[in-house]
Design a protein around this nucleic acid. Sequence first.
DNA 1: TTCTTGATTTAGACAGGACTAATACTGCTC
DNA 2: GAGCAGTATTAGTCCTGTCTAAATCAAGAA
Lengths: 234, 234
Amino acid sequence: MVVTGTSRAALAYLKALYALEEESPRSGARGRLGTARRVTTSAIAERLAVSAPSATNMLKRLAARDLVSYEPYKGASLTRKGRAVALEIVRHHRLLETYLVEALGVPWEEAHAEAEALESNLSESVEERMFAALGRPRFDPHGHSIPTRNGAMPKTSRRSLWDVSDGEAVLVAQVPDSHSDALRYLAEVGVLPGVRVTIESRGPVGGPLFVRVEDNEDAPVALSKEITEAIWVH
Amino acid sequence: MVVTGTSRAALAYLKALYALEEESPRSGARGRLGTARRVTTSAIAERLAVSAPSATNMLKRLAARDLVSYEPYKGASLTRKGRAVALEIVRHHRLLETYLVEALGVPWEEAHAEAEALESNLSESVEERMFAALGRPRFDPHGHSIPTRNGAMPKTSRRSLWDVSDGEAVLVAQVPDSHSDALRYLAEVGVLPGVRVTIESRGPVGGPLFVRVEDNEDAPVALSKEITEAIWVH
DNA sequence: TTCTTGATTTAGACAGGACTAATACTGCTC
DNA sequence: GAGCAGTATTAGTCCTGTCTAAATCAAGAA
Ligand SMILES: [Mn+2]
Ligand SMILES: [Mn+2]
Ligand SMILES: [Mn+2]
Ligand SMILES: [Mn+2]
């Protein structure tokens, strides 16, 4: 239980920091490990819907606990320790999402919010039981990898559907998890992880992508730039 | 979701107050409804392992929100509104205990603590799904009644095993839920809700009760006064 | 190299909760 | 009815987290 003694609020910051580091483009010198991606104070504040001073304040306190490395005016990044804590929460989150959907039939567009409510209070023991009950899953319902018990995060495809060329067929790897309207729509039209899709055509600059979904004889579905940028494929 | 906007800490006080009111002997004039049982500040403080001033402080704040009726030096009691909130948490707690034990195989002596960690973050939607998945249970694993969705609390037996006379056979209704050592022992010797037991004999004043357990050919089990007082039967 | 401006941090407050030390009640005893 | 003992409340702090307003920095424009 890496997480013990860390408040819900602090965990939210660590998780946000983790997500923002992942989202940020790989830092310049490809492969230069140790070159931690720094995340700006305002990015964190925005993500958590909190004021910038609040973020500064929390970053300092996390830095004092060696969970975050923070330099004034230069942003923050997770330390090894902070990353371990963040990954533990991510594991809780994704296991809960999976469990809620698989075992309790929670609609996938609601799973994210429900999991968020529970993730910081999940014990290792219950975590392990859910993991076993689900058959040791490797992906959550949105296709995100579930970190292992010891904090390893399997690498996943980073190619977005938006970047796929016309006529090419690809497999949906993951969809975003937190925009429930979009998720409801994706479920409706069948754009789910594991499904094969083909780009049929695309509208004018920045316009929608028309995507044909495997096993769906209907007309191709229109997907906005925003959403297709957030869908990873391989 | 009666509970929204009430902090984890505040919920703990309401729940403690509820439990203490239940435990207190029915107030004098049998049946005089409206005669709310008042709970002392120190009883609450002790139950929550908190200082007396902390309890005073919280009681005042709960009173300001009309969840508790509080008069200085005279203790506190739940208002109708406060009782509804408390019952909702009790429902969450007991459903979670049941779910953890039944669906995830959590040992019953651990269920209480695990449920306590999760109860204040359980949504109505997940609550309802667990309830359905369990087949709308009416009792938790320790034999406590689960309040209904609309906050009705079924009445239960209040006769304690300690008060049963020698030779009499009774059915265990409920056991205490929070002392895990005792629970582990009870499970081992088979003293579970629904099991029939007979008082074989009893030790000297305040000494242990020797109880024969249905379907258990072994020697009668010795149970302390404390534990048997906390076991209800019918 | 200096200016300007947007991003950040500092200052100062506040609410929720909890603690210790000091004070004030209450109820019981004589 | 006065005195005590034990309960309970008040006073004063502290810590977490959050906010707004004010000050400060860093980086690009000129
Ligand atoms: Mn999610
Ligand atoms: Mn864990
Ligand atoms: Mn319990
Ligand atoms: Mn509920």
